[in-house]
Amino acid sequence: MAITAAMVKELREMTGAGMMDCKKALNETNGNMDEAVEFLRKNGQAKAEKKASRIAAEGLCMVVTKDDQTAAVVEVNSETDFVAKNATFQEFVKAVATQAVNSDAADMDAFMAEKWNEDASKTVSEALVEKVAVIGENLKIRRFEKVVAEHGCVVPYVHGGGRIGVIVDADTDVVNDTVKEAMHNIAMQIAALNPKYVSRDEVSADYIAHEKEILLAQIMNDPKESQKPEKVINGMIEGRISKELKEVCLVDQVYVKAEDGKQTVAKYLEEVSKAVGGTVKVKRFVRFETGEGLEKKQEDFAAEVAAQMNA
């Protein structure tokens, strides 16, 4: 299969690996993008599949709460940052979020087919088309998620003027200002450190096995580390897995506002529970980041390469 410059560019943006390394990986895997990512990871040239590391699409994330038990977050994309800052666009995003918090739609197709709350003579999809005509730029309601607390409350947080939207679903015996403030702090933690799970209980055995396979391949590709005894290598893998889980599991993360720089989120929640005389836990969370996994239009790739070669 012929390896194109566009394929190399895509792999670079997915992994952060060098241009020639990406080209080699694609050649070795006959152009299979997923296998090329694995090839780079196993050779230590890509730390992880962080497609969102080059977030580029514009727009806004917005969170609307209906009451202490109900909230919704939406992401609406625009072509330019100029439109994202436009009051007309921002009002439309708020209307979409309000639609979502009152919606019972199970997926995006059903949501787009709903009657528009602000004018029942049209659907959400038709309201979007009209807004595109008014603003003069392509817009997209990309995603939404509604959260309903079963035992406790929901707490919203919006960061960076709409760059990140977070909802925390608190499982708690007590709902008061202290608990809500604690959940707001947790939401800020989620926005800043982007955990993937609440706790290790949510991490699948398949994920752990896959990461161990990657780590073993990295070690075996290192001339020094590969010579170590099997017991030592297994210990290294377990240590690195544990370190990774502390980064991706919310309750294992170091609490960002900890005075000693060591307290975990789990310990912070224990403190809050003791203070309010009940049990306070995070049941789940939702985190949307504007443009996550999307790309802006880029400059000509050949020109980019030429510029790097002439630098």
Rank of each mutant, 00 (worst) to 15 (best):
D67H: 08
Y197W: 04
F89R: 02
P229S: 10
M309R: 12
K115L: 12
G18R: 00
V132E: 13
N86Y: 11
A95F: 02
L215I: 13
C249N: 07
D68I: 06
M236K: 04
E58Q: 15
V254P: 04
D260W: 04
D68E: 14
G278P: 10
A266F: 12
G239C: 11
Q253P: 12
F92Q: 01
E28D: 15
E114A: 12
D67F: 07
N138A: 14
L11S: 00
E49S: 11
V166H: 08
I135R: 04
L215S: 05
M1W: 04
Q298W: 06
V83W: 09
A97P: 00
G152I: 05
N185Y: 09
K224G: 05
A149F: 04
V101Q: 01
I141C: 13
T70I: 05
A266V: 05
I55E: 05
L269M: 14
A36T: 03
K246F: 02
D169Y: 12
K50P: 02
A307V: 02
A127T: 07
F144G: 09
G161H: 10
Q69T: 13
E292R: 09
T4H: 05
T172Y: 03
F144L: 12
V265M: 12
V76H: 00
H184C: 09
E271R: 12
V203M: 11
V132P: 02
A46T: 00
S199V: 05
L128E: 10
T65I: 06
K50Y: 04
G16L: 01
A306I: 01
T4I: 06
T70Y: 02
Q189L: 09
G152T: 07
V168N: 03
E10P: 00
E10M: 00
A258S: 15
L11R: 01
A2R: 13
V265N: 11
N185Q: 15
V76Y: 00
S242K: 15
Q218F: 07
N86C: 09
E118K: 15
E247L: 08
K180A: 08
V147E: 05
E304Q: 14
D109L: 07
G162M: 10
R240V: 06
A192V: 09
N77I: 03
V93F: 02
R142F: 11
A127S: 14
A187Y: 07
K231G: 09
D119I: 10
L269A: 07
E181W: 04
K212A: 08
A192Q: 11
P195V: 06
N176E: 07
V174F: 02
E230G: 09
T88H: 12
K212H: 09
E270P: 03
A275V: 06
Q90P: 10
D222L: 03
D260M: 05
A303P: 01
F82H: 11
V175H: 04
L215W: 03
A105C: 09
E270K: 08
A25L: 03
